[in-house]
């Protein structure tokens, strides 16, 4: 990878500035223009983890100690910042049914955690509401001893002395309808699951804050660009 990039850079005569986070601190688009750059192409992807929602609102309790986001967790693990058996003796709850959530769950399990995955989607792979992760990931999780709670959402995170303690999970009766992603729940059927650690891994999106500070969003908060 490094040599592929080095070769491209050398052949095309590109100068690369590393660790440059445009939209944060002094490094702004307008600043680049002042430096003499006449045009900018921005393709900085979707680095921000999505927060847990229930209905239209953010699920309360995501600021409790012990709550983290899967992308950040995997970043720290892959950079060697998490020591072995970091989760030994801990109950780990992973929210999400995608490949990243399963990656997080299996990683936390290898760090000694007693891991449970909670996802909205169902186990039945012929259903419209089927779990989106690949079959290899699901089988791998099962083989590694991870519990999977299908068809459950998260309505509330309950803390105790500022630490996460448990989550309340109503049964999800339907994930997608004609509007697309629009989950429905049966609040009568709610279980609570205990956990010392809660890792939220429900997708990711663009870094709206830096796009906002670079003034690229319209009045509705959307990226304003000629498609």
């Amino acid at each position: 990878m490094t040599s592929a990039i080095d070769n491209l850079v050398r052949i095309a005569g590109i100068e690369v500035k590393y660790h440059a986070n445009v939209g944060q601190g002094d490094l702004t688009l307008d600043g680049l223009k002042k430096q003499g750059f006449e045009a900018v192409f921005m393709g900085k992807g979707t680095p921000a983890p999505r927060v847990l929602n229930f209905g239209r609102d953010d699920v309360p309790g995501q600021d409790l100690s012990g709550v983290m986001y899967g992308q950040n967790f995997l970043y720290e693990v892959s950079h060697g910042n998490i020591k072995p058996n970091y989760f030994r003796g801990k109950k780990v709850l992973v929210i999400g049914g995608g490949n990243v959530a399963f990656d997080v769950a299996r990683t936390s399990r290898r760090l000694g955690g007693e891991t449970t995955i909670v996802c909205l989607e169902c186990e039945d792979r012929s259903s419209k509401d089927r779990v989106p992760a690949d079959w290899e990931e699901i089988r791998g999780a099962w083989e590694e001893g991870i519990r999977i709670q299908y068809s459950r959402g998260v309505r509330r995170i309950v803390g105790e002395r500022e630490r996460v303690r448990k989550i309340e999970c109503p049964r999800c009766t339907s994930v997608y309808d004609e509007k697309g992603f629009n989950p429905k729940f049966d609040l009568e059927d709610t279980i609570s699951l205990e956990g010392d650690v809660l890792i939220v891994t429900v997708g990711q999106g663009p870094d709206k804050q830096s796009l906002q500070s670079d003034d690229l969003l319209d009045e509705k908060g959307r990226l304003s660009v000629d498609p």
């Binding site: 006449e38 045009a39 921005m42 393709g43 979707t46 663009p206 690229l216 969003l217």
Partner: peptide, 11 residues
């Protein structure tokens, strides 16, 4: 919003 900026990819 800024005619000298072009945006693409997953962003």
């Amino acid at each position: 919003k800024k005619e000298w900026v072009f945006i693409g990819g997953d962003l």
